[in-house]
């Protein structure tokens, strides 16, 4: 396999990376809102968020992508397929990340919150200075895992016609008859990206306060 083909795959990896990154960040923002609703004491508020999470965690991403890709034109939104792909990945990852965040906020030790209350912290201060940092610290490993999951899942956006690594390998394989080399190279690219994310995650985790030095 020539270097030129590998270079084309690497270029397509830019799409994989950017779609994954945008989806994870948007998903995180959405997950913050969702987890806030999930932690509400009113069942009426919690129920829709729980339904959303159950749906997006219970349906294959491929089916979600097909649904969103076909739904958007149906409701009169003619957007490029990249947008549909990002919406699909974002909603899916938001459901997982919201569940992580809820777990994180629930495992902030009660004693710490009571101590802060005693020390005269306001509700807002307790939230910003006690709950958020501890919950973020606790959910960081899960966030790294989710980033890796989304990176791998982004291979599915090839079904809505985006030429990222998998689709590029598929297209090149059908024209060059080198499927083994091309799909192995695609796998290698994914491996390197996944391992890099895991490595960066581990270092960041150690650098965070309260980490294992």
């Amino acid at each position: 396999m020539s270097f030129k083909l590998f270079f084309l795959l690497l270029k397509a990896a830019g799409w994989t990376l950017s779609i994954s990154l945008v989806s994870i960040l948007l998903g995180f923002a959405l997950a913050i809102g969702l987890s806030a609703v999930l932690l509400s004491s009113k069942r009426l508020y919690r129920a829709p968020a729980e339904l959303f999470i159950s749906f997006f965690r219970g349906v294959p991403l491929l089916v979600q992508l097909l649904f969103i890709y076909n739904l958007l034109p149906f409701i009169g939104l003619n957007v490029p397929s990249v947008v549909a792909a990002i919406i699909g990945l974002t909603l899916c990852t938001a459901a997982y990340q919201a569940e992580n965040l809820r777990g994180g906020f629930e495992s902030v030790p009660r004693g710490l919150i009571e101590a802060a209350d005693m020390a005269g912290f306001s509700v807002r201060q307790i939230f910003l200075r006690i709950k958020v940092p501890i919950a973020m610290r606790l959910t960081f490993p899960a966030l790294v895992n989710e980033a890796i999951m989304i990176l791998k899942s982004s291979s599915l956006v090839s079904v809505v016609g985006i030429v990222e690594v998998t689709k590029m390998a598929q297209d090149l394989a059908s024209s060059t008859y080198l499927p083994i080399e091309l799909f192995s190279s695609a796998a290698l690219i994914y491996l390197v990206i996944c391992w890099s994310i895991a490595l960066i995650g581990r270092y960041t985790e150690r650098a965070l306060p309260g980490g294992v030095k």
């Binding site: 899942s153 291979s155 998998t166 008859y177 499927p179 083994i180 491996l191």
Partner: peptide, 23 residues
């Protein structure tokens, strides 16, 4: 184990399904 866990399932299927006949 690490290779299988670090690559998308779709790529693995493509490798076996389209690459298999060549091997």
């Amino acid at each position: 184990v690490e290779i299988l866990r670090g690559t998308p399932f779709l790529v693995q299927i493509f490798l076996v399904y389209y690459g298999g006949p060549f091997a």
